[in-house]
């Protein structure tokens, strides 16, 4: 019962993507759209498969860069989130700064990173990192700041230290918020990496797409987009699975609905 419901759900999302591609394909054929303007999905997928040996190092480059940036961003984001979340004063004081920081278009900081570190992998990692920090900080801080005081009081009355309260109540309670932010952050990290690669790099999917569009190889540019989308979905799924393992307790409503 439970399994079949889940299968049906997955089947419907596959169907949605497939039908979108079919509409796209048919519309391109019907209106005779040139491949230079908008290639058909079949052309894009063919290009992706044919060019895969050449694309693979770039995909790997983008993936690794993103994961490094995301990893560093996650560590910094969690630490900042804890610092901001444990005290109301820090929360109120730091919030405007965080909002201001996140409002800066990331495309504007890439030249600065290039200026400091030269073009290549380092600015891409840093851009990925700065793009994904904000949602993590905000969610971790919100999770901590909204912990029920009664939960903390029970431990404080026992004589627990601030650290023990944080470890036993604050952090576990924040896990669902944290994972929600990870799913957003990992896709944002991709945006950051590709952004930096299109501006200043000689490897990565961003670079491939820049070169492809410069030589009017539009199917290849779209193949790059598809590769990015696939990587994004892949990582999203990975984090969704980890989330289900670690904080399934927070999603029990779904379980009941499906059971």
């Amino acid at each position: 019962m439970k399994v079949s419901a889940r299968l049906r759900e997955q089947f419907s999302s596959v169907m949605l993507i497939a039908s979108l591609f079919v509409i796209w394909e048919v519309a391109c054929l019907l209106f005779n759209v040139s491949a230079i303007v908008l290639p058909r999905p079949s052309q894009i997928i063919t290009t992706l498969i044919v060019q895969l040996p050449a694309l693979w190092p770039h995909i790997l480059q983008t993936l690794v860069t993103t994961m490094i940036g995301f990893g560093i961003g996650m560590v910094i984001g969690v630490l900042l989130g804890i610092m901001v979340g444990v005290s109301r004063a820090a929360y109120n004081a730091a919030y405007p700064l965080l909002v201001g920081f996140s409002s800066i278009p990331k495309v504007a900081v890439v030249p600065i990173f290039v200026l400091w570190f030269g073009s290549g992998t380092v600015p891409a990692i840093l851009t990925a990192m700065t793009t994904c920090i904000f949602p993590i900080v905000v969610n971790v801080a919100t999770g901590l700041a909204t912990t029920e005081p009664e939960m903390e009081d029970v431990l404080k009355a026992l004589g627990a230290s601030r650290w023990q309260v944080l470890w036993n109540v604050g952090l576990p309670r924040t896990m669902p918020y944290f994972f929600a932010s990870l799913k957003i952050a990992v896709t944002l990290a991709f945006v950051g990496t590709v952004l930096s690669e299109t501006v200043a790099a000689n490897r990565g999917i961003g670079t491939v797409m820049m070169m492809a569009s410069a030589s009017f190889d539009v199917p290849l540019a779209f193949a790059g987009l598809f590769a990015l989308a696939l990587l994004g979905i892949l990582l999203y799924v990975v984090f969704a699975i980890i989330e289900q393992r670690i904080c399934g307790w927070a999603n029990r409503k779904n379980e009941f609905a499906m059971a």
């Binding site: 026992l158 004589g159 576990p172 896990m175």
Partner: peptide, 16 residues
């Protein structure tokens, strides 16, 4: 720190 036991109207069991 003598470890005082405490219980409120809301049971505050940790859901995880």
């Amino acid at each position: 720190r003598i470890g005082i036991g405490m219980a409120f109207q809301n049971p505050t069991m940790l859901p995880w």
